[in-house]
Design a protein around this nucleic acid. Structure first.
Length: 274
DNA sequence: CCCCTATCCTGAGGGC
DNA sequence: TGCCCTCAGGATAGGG
């Protein structure tokens, strides 16, 4: 599933090809994926606009237009946002096609439809209540000293639940929560407030490390994730624990345990992570 | 405050 | 070969 490293890879892929392009037409839209505004108004806001810049906040892709509006795309579990030739064969579950003046098309596809699309100004989306309040970015300079550290220090919830909370840490999902816990040698089921200062510091240091590594490998494609050009990422092969329950720990060779924490499948090493 | 569960949805994979 | 069942989970809403 697309988490911060996957979304970042897509944004970096698309940016040089999309910024400065004019949206000639909204070729195809599945109204069901539009959460705001009324689907009928999306074409009006997009057609004829130029893409001013492309950004990311947490797991949200932000495509800023010269109108000060932004097209916000959340990929959910199975979403992809790819640049393709306008004549390229159309895959099933393609919900949005944006024809660009470059001759290419920006295509949003999402079989499970857990993703969503928004269009509006920043304040408009906030007022409409469709854009959640997001926590700190793992690559922000003050990440390890800010909100995330404070919540981890005081929350009685499991560490894993805090890591997954988008209002605390923006962009962390199931994969990198488990990876960070492994690298920091912290059990994901521990109550956050019971971590020692050293454990908490290790955990906060680990998250940007595992994410940076994943970005270098262009993201984790264990199922649906694809980069901005439709290709798979290579990070899955280098993950420590995610998807490896029952197999040997890469550090101590003992069998990795798989449990459910905060409603999510969680894998950790019972020997390395205390 | 916090946990758990159901909900949305499709495709993959196992069992037979 | 094919059918049925279960499971996967990001975000959110509602119940305990």
């Amino acid at each position: 599933m697309p988490e911060l490293p996957e979304v970042e890879t897509i944004v970096r892929d698309l940016r040089p090809h999309v910024v400065g392009s004019r949206v000639e037409a909204l070729v195809h839209l599945n109204p069901a994926v539009v959460r705001y505004p009324d689907p009928g108004d999306v074409a009006v806001g997009l057609e004829g606009r130029t893409v001013a810049c492309l950004g990311r906040r947490g797991k949200f892709i932000q495509l800023w237009l010269d109108s000060k509006q932004e097209l916000v795309v959340h990929l959910g579990m199975t979403g992809t946002l790819t640049l393709e030739a306008a004549a390229a064969p159309l895959r099933t579950h393609t919900h949005l096609r944006l024809g660009l003046d470059s001759g290419s098309e920006l295509r949003y596809r999402d079989p499970r439809r857990f993703g969503r699309v928004l269009l509006g100004t920043e304040s408009e989306l906030e007022q409409a209540g469709v854009m959640p309040r997001l926590g700190v970015e793992p690559f922000a300079p003050d990440f390890a000293s800010g909100l995330a550290a404070e919540v981890l220090r005081t929350s009685r919830r499991p560490v894993k639940a805090v890591l997954l909370d988008q209002s605390v840490i923006a962009g962390c999902g199931n994969i990198y929560a488990d990876e960070a816990c492994f690298l920091a040698r912290v059990r994901p089921g521990r109550r956050a407030w019971r971590l020692s200062t050293s454990e908490r510091r290790r955990l906060l240091a680990a998250l940007p490390i595992v994410m940076a590594e994943a970005i270098e490998r262009r993201g984790t494609s264990f199922s649906d994730y694809r980069d901005g050009f439709g290709a798979k990422g290579q990070a899955f092969e280098s993950l420590f624990v995610y998807g490896r329950g029952g197999r040997a720990c890469v550090r101590c060779r003992s069998t990795l345990r798989q449990v459910r924490i905060a409603g999510r499948t969680t894998v950790f090493c019972g020997r390395c992570q205390s």
